[in-house]
Design a protein around this nucleic acid. Structure first.
Lengths: 209, 209
DNA sequence: GCTCTTACGCTACGACCCGTAGCGTAACCG
DNA sequence: CGGTTACGCTACGGGTCGTAGCGTAAGAGC
């Protein structure tokens, strides 16, 4: 997870410490909570992790890549979409789940920061996409497939429009939750989730239903 | 604009150079384009502006505040909402206008960066709100008022729900455009704007109409 | 066991940026 | 013309960056 490279089973020499990986990522999240993105330094992370600074640089190119991996682990652990029985309930569930992640101080300060950096760094943008964004989007695809199986949404006529619609819905859901949380700085509570979901489901059924 | 403080008409002594203000903000935007948020330094901005670094620190507390003001000026210049005759057309207009701002490299790299910093700095968050966010939101309020006057949307029963709905719509519009542009890194073109607007208008009429 | 190879910890380093202090000069007010 | 504030300039201590060098630690292969 740390290095996106396949790392083709290096056969000789001392192996990298998996323990160190864990300690570094834990220390990164802790530092994000205490210091925030702006004041986080790699030297401090190394000290917290009980690891030499050089070890850190041997595994990650810099602050951006390290933080992406540290935050991505949280998305791995806390994103899932149990079948709640209806499109409405599924959307509310994913909204509240995503919002819960954004309430955490680590993700709050880190997510937008790395996205900002990624506007000038394509490799970083791809890393964010594969480590975080695609995992979120898969929930949208899953939710739609279920809704179509239930007959709540029509099946797409062609793959192109299917992809377009999925992208649109994903940007609307994730964008609204992020904007509400980080820009408006208001909580995504049950009431907001209900209102948002009503708006979105209304639009989906009115437009495609 | 530079200092949000009222600055009660200082009457004596040498006045601050308005020319310097302009040069500094121009230099900031130019540096954002060339270097991006991460590599931008105040020393460099001062040199570009032909101004001493100390002058810069006399007016702005730091990088965050300076960049917010530099970007806010762009929003002042490029945000307006002419009456396009229908709710649908008004929304498409504001979406494309906001997207055009986010296409600019200055805003692309700066906006999310300062928002990320603002998660740990309330004063900065308030500055962003008054200098940028509230100006966007006023467009939403204007668009809704027009739609209500045209009979496209119902009048709100009470001020509380009116405010809630406006906040929701604002987060959906701004959030979706930002997410599409910066996270998905896909262009907000006419086609996307039409699809998004159809979804939103469908939701509004289905939910509140 | 032994050797080979890679990872690790540690120290040290030049480069850069930060934010401020001090001082002489410039501009505007009464 | 004094009074007051802004400006340019220089200099500085403090911090972070990212890397180089070196001796040591930990497995893999024989």
């Amino acid at each position: 997870m740390s290095s996106a490279a396949p790392t083709p089973a290096r056969r000789t020499g001392r192996p990298r410490s998996a323990e160190a990986d864990r300690a570094i990522l834990d220390a990164t999240r802790a530092a994000l909570v205490e210091l925030g993105w702006g004041k986080l330094t790699l030297g401090d992370v190394a000290t917290r992790a009980g690891v030499a600074k050089t070890t850190l640089y041997r595994r990650w190119a810099g602050k951006n890549e390290l933080v992406v991996d540290a935050v991505a682990a949280l998305f791995d652990e806390h994103l899932e979409l149990p079948d709640r029985g209806s499109l409405r309930a599924d959307i509310e569930g994913v909204v509240l789940q995503f919002a819960a992640l954004l309430e955490r101080p680590e993700t709050r300060t880190a997510l937008m920061a790395v996205v900002a950096e990624s506007t000038r760094d394509d490799a970083l943008r791809r890393r964010i996409r594969s480590a975080i964004v695609d995992r979120q989007k898969s929930l949208v695809l899953l939710g739609r497939a279920r809704a179509q199986a239930r007959g709540e949404l029509p099946h797409e006529p062609d793959p192109a429009s299917a992809a377009r619609n999925a992208d649109l819905i994903f940007d609307v859901i994730a964008g609204a939750v992020v904007h509400r949380t980080l820009v408006s700085a208001e909580p995504v509570d049950d009431e907001w989730a209900r209102g948002f979901t009503a708006l979105l489901v209304g639009g989906l059924t009115a437009t495609y239903g």
